[in-house]
């Protein structure tokens, strides 16, 4: 028989008790790991959102940008207008050219007719 005096210091624990306590510990450890993962995800998402917000503020809102976007100057404006009127000028030029050509053509025809008459 085991000396009962030894049991004053230590005593074997029933296995069923061991299992229940270890199951509780496993459950607790799992809850801790889940909480840590969730906290990590929340912080990562918050950091990403903050970074996006800063980037968006810098690039999407012009007021936040130190420099100014290029705006057309008055001379550029008039040049642009000139370009818009250019098609009309070009058309007139073409018309004049056509008329000029037509006149030469007409003269050429007349010349040929006259030459034929002389013959």
């Amino acid at each position: 028989m085991k000396n009962r005096f030894e049991n004053l210091r230590v005593h074997d624990v029933p296995e069923a008790l061991d299992r229940r306590i270890m199951a509780a510990a496993a459950h607790k450890a799992k809850a801790v790991r889940f909480r840590r993962s969730l906290t990590h995800c929340v912080f990562t998402a918050a950091a990403s959102a903050a970074a996006l917000l800063i980037a968006g503020t810098v690039f999407l809102f012009p007021e936040a940008y130190h420099g100014e976007l290029a705006r057309p100057t008055k001379s550029v404006d008039s040049e642009l207008l000139a370009l818009a009127d250019w098609s009309t000028l070009e058309q007139e030029s073409y018309n004049l050219s056509f008329e000029l050509y037509s006149g030469r053509q007409a003269l050429a025809e007349l010349s040929s007719v006259r030459m034929q008459e002389e013959y």
């Binding site: 049991n7 074997d12 061991d18 840590r36």
Partner: peptide, 26 residues
């Protein structure tokens, strides 16, 4: 264990379980 390592608790438990059980038993 506080970081989620259940094997650490298992070691701690194994270290003191017999002493505590002996104490309570008496």
């Amino acid at each position: 264990f506080v970081r989620g390592d259940e094997r650490a608790f298992e070691q701690l438990y194994g270290r003191y379980k017999r002493q505590l059980y002996g104490f309570l038993n008496n």
